[in-house]
Design a protein around this nucleic acid. Sequence first.
DNA 1: TAGCACCCGGAAAGCGCTTGCAGAAAGCGC
DNA 2: GCGCTTTCTGCAAGCGCTTTCCGGGTGCTA
Lengths: 343, 343
Amino acid sequence: MQPRPHSTLEDVAKAAGVSPATASRALNGTTQVRPHLRDRVLQAAEELAYTPNAHARALAGAGHRTVGVICHDVSDPYFAAVAGGIMRVAGDHDLLVTLASTFRDPEREVAYVSMLRAERAAAILLIGSGFENPDWERALSAELEPYLKGGGRVAVVSRHRSLRVDSVLPENRAGAAAMARALLDLGHRRFAVLAGPRTLTTVADRIAGFRDELRKAGVPLRAADIVENTFTRDGGYAAMTQVLSRGLEATCVFAVTDVMAIGALAALRDHGLSVPADVSVAGFDDIPIVRDLAPPLTTVALPLPQLGERAIELALTENPGRRRRIHRMAGEVVLRASTAKVL
Amino acid sequence: MQPRPHSTLEDVAKAAGVSPATASRALNGTTQVRPHLRDRVLQAAEELAYTPNAHARALAGAGHRTVGVICHDVSDPYFAAVAGGIMRVAGDHDLLVTLASTFRDPEREVAYVSMLRAERAAAILLIGSGFENPDWERALSAELEPYLKGGGRVAVVSRHRSLRVDSVLPENRAGAAAMARALLDLGHRRFAVLAGPRTLTTVADRIAGFRDELRKAGVPLRAADIVENTFTRDGGYAAMTQVLSRGLEATCVFAVTDVMAIGALAALRDHGLSVPADVSVAGFDDIPIVRDLAPPLTTVALPLPQLGERAIELALTENPGRRRRIHRMAGEVVLRASTAKVL
DNA sequence: TAGCACCCGGAAAGCGCTTGCAGAAAGCGC
DNA sequence: GCGCTTTCTGCAAGCGCTTTCCGGGTGCTA
């Protein structure tokens, strides 16, 4: 029945009584086309509900207006916020965004890069910490290399530095240090740290910044004060529970991400402890929800959407020298009601 | 320097000493290729870091393994959760997901459908309520129609029914009715409803279900008890503030979405009211965060990730009769500490 | 009115891949 | 060992578009 599912440029050209070349030019405005011809083409296109085939177009050399974004899980508020920033910029550039959630599976991440490569995506953005295993990071590099050589643009956000590509880096170390200072100022001297996998630089940096600042003040942070778990709400809950199980000595809990802090708050509530009366809690990231918690969470505020915006802008911006560009973004301590002065 | 940025099938074929056709067949396994030839091809591909050009492939008729998802805003926890479900299923099918946030701009929505059409996406999924204006819905239909005729698959989640496509529909009406019953059982008789744009069927249904159930119990819900605002946290805050400004008579506030409920909770806190002691609050959706609020939010739990999973499965499943399939999903009232018995 | 530059439109060559089609090779029975 | 069937392989067409290269108008100048 249907001769061809979609109408093609040739159909349009025929309907308008011009050649496909002219139709193409009229539609894209690459070259001047006499007004009355252009109007005929436009009208024909309209009538035929013509939509250019993006594949044909890309194949013919017009490039592909898609950027690929790879993160661990879109439903995590952190990634959702960063992705939101990317989407906004992408929308302004008429770019389509292909978003892939790896669910923290390294093989999947590599597979996605490969698919994005096959798509000839204009750029690939990797958001979130890399994987613990350096082998995975290598496999990823191997996949990325040919892409870069082929003119692909890559940018990473808050990611292990082993990849030699443009990156947007939150100042994790300085942010954590600032948080330590703020908590010290409140009079805290005993801390518990709830950490994600410590092989991730994000985690390592936040812990290091926090610990170094404490040390400067002569306050030690012992290895036992740091509890490691997954980067999730439940991970935070479990880590907090573990801390509680050996008897809470700390007056303040610092979770390396807000999501973990949310789990920690839940665990504390479930154990009948009140925040900040019994113990103070601080997080990191400032995902949108934490200001609405009760108590609102003290945290290091990162400009999450901007992280994404800078990343895509970086990737889209010409880089003649092919130098590795790094855009650092500072975090700011926001004191809310989840932390209190020690009496 | 670089003769061609990427190595092509022809390069692989040449390196393996076979024709492109054979190389293609070896790589795709469409037809038997003698083992030693196949191995040579595979090895050559490996050595050349060959990645097939998805565009060429799609153009040559092999179809395109991408599904498009259009929602209002990925950074909204509701959409993030639904998208999460979609991603999981897509990953299992080796499909790439192109996610577009319209930021509630109808023109952008139509434009995205057009772009997805141009991409020859295997399916287009529309998540979230349609727009208030029936004209927009028509414009959208006009864009979708040719896509469907061309063999495209479309499914919508929680969306205005005017589109004649497969859909996944939460049972908004029944869910809201169940919530009304639960609140009545707690002894509440005076309610305030915080609504999103009422022209959206989602909102209309939730209000109707709620009101009808109250009516059955002889409890009236007057027009003035319903306050309308945007579908956001700030919208909830504003709506709640408005209710408070005319003097709170209600013993219970029902927000048509959790996100609005979060705003309402914040507004109540800012006004020095305590929940549920002074007033009970209930929401709808059960986005993941609400169980961790203090107090945890009473709400109608929708299986958010499943909403997405069903939608993509629906779109991917053959539909020989071309009938409009509707998958309804029930919500379940979850009573948490944000609602209390009326003394 | 002739001459020149300029602009516009068309023909055609691909972009990289899949896929009939047909021929070559291999396997089988007799 | 011959002819037949059954695999396998290569040729070539073509997916829908962009773009280079030209030829033919057009408008301007002399």
